[in-house]
């Protein structure tokens, strides 16, 4: 896969970030390098290998259906960029 300028612009849009020209050049190169490195894997024959999504042989880790948390709004809102009326306050965002 080739990383194009258009693809970098598209990724900026999806990530809601804006890069300057210098960063764009660097990002394009970095992404291309990463993909080329990963491409090495394509040299292997994986025809009869099951796809793997998790590398540790752990499964069925559950919690029981019990409420253990109470109101911790004050603590949680300490992490908000800004807060108002008990809510996280962000830039106006409408679909």
């Amino acid at each position: 896969m080739v990383i194009t300028d258009e693809l970098v612009a598209y990724l900026e849009k999806l990530g809601r970030i804006e890069l300057d020209d210098e960063q764009r050049v660097k990002t394009k190169k970095d992404l291309q390098d990463i993909l080329s490195y990963i491409d090495t894997l394509n040299e292997l024959d994986t025809d009869n290998i099951e796809p793997l999504s998790h590398s540790f042989p752990i499964f069925n880790v559950f919690a029981e259906d019990e409420v253990k948390n109470g109101d911790m709004r004050d603590e949680v809102l300490k992490n908000a960029p800004e807060s108002q009326d008990g809510c996280f306050k962000v830039h106006r965002t409408v679909e």
Partner: peptide, 23 residues
């Protein structure tokens, strides 16, 4: 009241881990 049923996991704080409710 807003954000009174919220913790570090459901407010998406970095470094937290979800654990699935079996129910």
């Amino acid at each position: 009241e807003p954000n009174t049923h919220v913790c570090e996991i459901c407010s998406g704080m970095p470094g937290t881990l979800p654990v699935l409710n079996k129910k």
